[in-house]
Design a protein around this nucleic acid. Sequence first.
DNA 1: AGAATTGTGAAAAATTTATCACAAGCGCAT
DNA 2: ATGCGCTTGTGATAAATTTTTCACAATTCT
Lengths: 290, 290
Amino acid sequence: MAEAPLTISDRIQKKLEGLTRAERQLAHSILENYPASGLGPLTALAKDAEVSVPTVARMVQKLGFKGYPEFQAELREELRAKVKGPIAKHDTWADGAPEGHMLNRFTDAVIDNIRHTLGQIDPQAFDAACALVGDTKRHLYIVGGRVTHTLAEYLFLHMQVIRPRITHIQSTSNTWPHYLLDVAPGDVFVIYDVRRYENNTLKLAEMAHAQGAKVILFTDQWRSPVHQLADISFSSRIVVPSAWDSAATTLLLTETMISAVQNLDWDKTKTRMQGLEDMFDQTKLFRKFT
Amino acid sequence: MAEAPLTISDRIQKKLEGLTRAERQLAHSILENYPASGLGPLTALAKDAEVSVPTVARMVQKLGFKGYPEFQAELREELRAKVKGPIAKHDTWADGAPEGHMLNRFTDAVIDNIRHTLGQIDPQAFDAACALVGDTKRHLYIVGGRVTHTLAEYLFLHMQVIRPRITHIQSTSNTWPHYLLDVAPGDVFVIYDVRRYENNTLKLAEMAHAQGAKVILFTDQWRSPVHQLADISFSSRIVVPSAWDSAATTLLLTETMISAVQNLDWDKTKTRMQGLEDMFDQTKLFRKFT
DNA sequence: AGAATTGTGAAAAATTTATCACAAGCGCAT
DNA sequence: ATGCGCTTGTGATAAATTTTTCACAATTCT
């Protein structure tokens, strides 16, 4: 396994012994608020450590850098790597796969996407969205595009068990205008639109919005134009080493929403699930779960 | 809840809406490696975001700072505070969500699933499966069940661009026996079957197998009965805090396979994608990708 | 076509960094 | 105590880099 390169912190600590008084003082100051203090101007660091400017300059060179800017650059690089998270540095996922195997590269990317996406989600907005989706007084429409209709259907399949009054619409079908006839104010639209954004989806969203429906949007980091009229939107990072985008993060959010909604009224959900079970038993569509 | 002062990240996100194209691009770049990228020189940030220097300068002022140095100073302060805090461990994904919020619990579970799954995958088997799937001399059948047909369709939609001779079959449809008439030895079946395993899927797999087809199976950790006759199978962990299972890991594997297969003969894939683009352009189904 | 946005290139201003010479400080052996 | 050698700070200055700003052209969007 490739060994992590020595961090600057490590390097400093290793040298701590051989350092002179002022240098040690400086070193401690750097480590005190690592790495923030090292990222400011040299003069600030000097003053902070109560040490003279030349001392800092000399020390940085003693650490093997060409100059202070180079030292900072490496600190930033370190920070960048560190923020990637304890998870991301897990640089092989599939043991025994060659270094740059697609399995590892792709997984890295997806984990990264998840981390970014979740970091930007507003939990309150999420809860609000779940409340809307779980509110059976409102009819629920689920909309997907050419690719995303698979996600829409995934949501549909599960929501179907949780609550009544749902409709799944494909924006690419030419039948969608019919559905809009019956939309009442307060009804809820869950819309999936990731690049490349589809005109049909936008039109549909506009019409739904015009009829007073609430719009919840799942989109990507660049945001579908639908987001301008959406009441709540969630942006997922979707970049992966591929010619296409990843739906994994969006699916994660969708599944989380399913899970959250089912808990809003768990008793009712349970009852409905039981009913479904019974029907499946009768049709013998599935094997018994062992 | 004691509210932390607005972080720069928050402020940027809050403004995201009102920003123009270049500014948004810059904003995303800053958030991409937050806060590391903002701590380098202004010029570096501009280049990184593929944005001009004045754009950065303007934006920083728009955010309410007197100049770039002041912006950096606050970033450093933020970093200092964050590292100080005991919350340095990365145990929450969505900042600001209550401890046991579903967003965090669910994400934890999915990441865990991914780790387990990838740890058990045999890269060689994976490569072999990709080679089969990418082999245009073989007809490719993609099969899903009641829920998993969404995953199957996702694979289908993408493979459709990469290669000809594909068929998507829903095992729950009553038309599937017809497809089997034309199956030739050496044809490839990609089958999705996670609990609750479906009788139809098993039957279909058996018949395909009987006709000499290769079977690649995506299943869960308990393994669909189909795996006994599958040439290659992949088991995903699918447990999440929900009444249903998660398809996220299976989707991850599927997407990785798409990416790997598209690279097997990238030139051909590219050509086909181009053709598709042209057709979309003509039908004006999509907006121009900006 | 017109308005808003963005990039270009350049130059000035400000800040930061790197160095220097020298004096002051410190520890230590004599 | 004395003096030697090493370390450190001072203040100044030169060099390098970075930031800021401008005017104007190019582009994009409406």
